[in-house]
Design a protein around this nucleic acid. Structure first.
Length: 437
DNA sequence: ATCGGCTCGCGCAA
DNA sequence: TGCGCGAAGCCGAT
């Protein structure tokens, strides 16, 4: 990431940000191997940034559960783990000043790229970035923003065998081990507690039942492979069933590696539709945010769909709702209200309903731009997997991104339309609505 | 119940 | 330059 050299230092520093896990954490593994080569201990630092845009209590509670999980796991490896708060300078200048070199994991969001850029610039020593939250690294998959899944798919499938065969799964043994210091773990604990306390008053939202951390992620993966994979293709779209892996939030925080998921499912012949989601669709989402500067703005949507939506901006909407009415799940549409309640109560929504929910927001907002803002706001506020590549791309899809045009109609123009009758025709909507009433 | 048409632009084949 | 094709659609005709 920078052209600097190894320095005489007290430790190798692993700056953990996007991969909060021990299992298949290639950045951590690389840092351990490097520490062994240099005959130095390893220090892991995570910066907990309570001012992360749009993050609130529920996101931090989930993340902090994962950090606690990591802390107990990493202490067994014999390395020091420190959670630091404050600005980048406050968090990193001191740890950087004693580092021989730095290893960091890779994030794809604009803010994560900015942080990594800062690290590359401000570290006096060598900084190495390890990409371990995609199976095929984003720039290896494609050198440009792809038009749709079908243009990326062949590129990904060609490279998948290579990127699933090279990786080491065994955690390397650290040579210079350090006993976990009780003072440091007490300090970490205080930081976690005070961050949550602050957010509890600032940005309180109903707590969700989903529990963060890599242990829970691994448990969900086991449940999925054992009980759901066989019927996944058949049941995944029915929102009344719990037929999907529900691992998206765990992937978002790096509690689980996509490679680990791939390894758990690939041996089953019925895994193809799931792998399409895990690999092709997920890589496409990352391709979009990586190659599109303003991936979170209406103006980055494809030209054909924006033009078409704007042409139909004067069209009369059948219903126009204020944001507070939407947030209260108080529309005329029982399916939509149920989806909104699922989102608020659980921080999650089944994929079919994410699409339907988004399409209706377009229909019930005065302009497509307003619909885009509302969709982004609600996604980021309530979903545990919000502010993720998949989330931004999913919002875009509702507006025609990575999709094709359809017969022109009111309000939507040529952007794909969905209606409630379609849901009732295909799925058990009464069961779904009953679940969230 | 099933089926064609709708519509744009990419990328491959020619 | 032409042509096939595409994350989950809808709608009207048969």
């Amino acid at each position: 990431m920078n052209n600097r050299t190894y320095l005489p230092g007290r430790y190798v520093l692993y700056r953990m940000q996007a991969s909060v896990r021990i299992t298949n954490n290639q950045a951590l593994f690389h840092a351990i191997r490097l520490a062994n080569e240099l005959n130095l201990p390893l220090k892991v630092v995570f910066r907990l940034d309570a001012s992360f845009p749009e993050a609130n209590y529920r996101h931090f509670e989930f993340l902090i559960q994962g950090l606690k999980d990591f802390a107990s796991g990493v202490s067994l490896l014999g390395c020091e783990f420190e959670i630091r708060t404050g600005t980048l300078e406050e968090a990193f200048l001191e740890p950087l000043s004693n580092a021989a070199c730095v290893v960091t994991d890779k994030g794809y969001l604009r803010i994560q790229r900015d942080w990594s850029g800062w690290l590359g610039e401000h570290a006096p020593c060598k900084v190495i970035e390890v990409e371990d939250n995609l199976i095929v690294p984003v720039e290896s998959a494609s050198h440009k923003g792809e038009w749709a899944a079908r243009t990326l798919r062949p590129k990904i499938t060609d490279k998948l065998p290579y990127f699933t065969s090279e990786l080491e799964d065994e955690i390397p043994v650290l040579t210079c081990r350090k006993e976990a210091s009780p003072e440091l773990s007490a300090l970490n604990e205080r930081i976690l507690t005070s961050t949550l306390e602050k957010l509890r008053s600032d940005a309180w939202l109903i707590p969700v039942a989903m529990k963060g951390g890599e242990q829970e992620a691994n448990r969900l993966l086991d449940v999925f492979v054992k009980d759901k994979l066989a019927s996944y293709d058949n049941d995944r779209n029915d929102p009344s069933l719990v037929a999907t892996s529900r691992l998206s939030a765990y992937l978002h925080f790096g509690f689980i590696s996509p490679v680990e998921i791939w390894k758990a499912v690939e041996k089953y012949p019925e895994s193809a539709p799931f792998i399409e989601q895990l690999v092709v669709r997920r890589e496409l989402a990352h391709n979009y945010i990586w190659f599109t500067k303003n991936y979170d703005s209406y103006n980055s949507l494809p030209e054909w769909s924006r033009k078409s939506l704007e042409l139909h901006e004067p069209d009369k909407r059948p219903f126009v709702y204020d944001l507070n009415l939407l947030e209260e799940a108080a529309t005329h549409d029982a399916s939509w209200n149920a989806a909104m309640r699922e989102m608020i109560q659980t921080g999650f929504m089944e994929n079919t309903m994410r699409m339907y929910w988004g399409k209706k927001l377009i229909e019930w907002s005065a302009t497509p731009q307003e619909a885009y803002h509302r969709m982004s706001y609600l996604n980021n506020r309530y979903f545990l997997d919000g502010r993720d590549a998949n989330s931004f791309t999913g919002i875009g899809w509702c507006f025609g991104l990575h999709d094709r045009p359809w017969q022109e109609r009111s309000v939507f123009g040529m952007v794909r339309y969905m209606n409630e009758a379609g849901l009732y025709r295909k799925y058990n909507m009464n069961a779904y609505i009953g679940k969230w009433s």
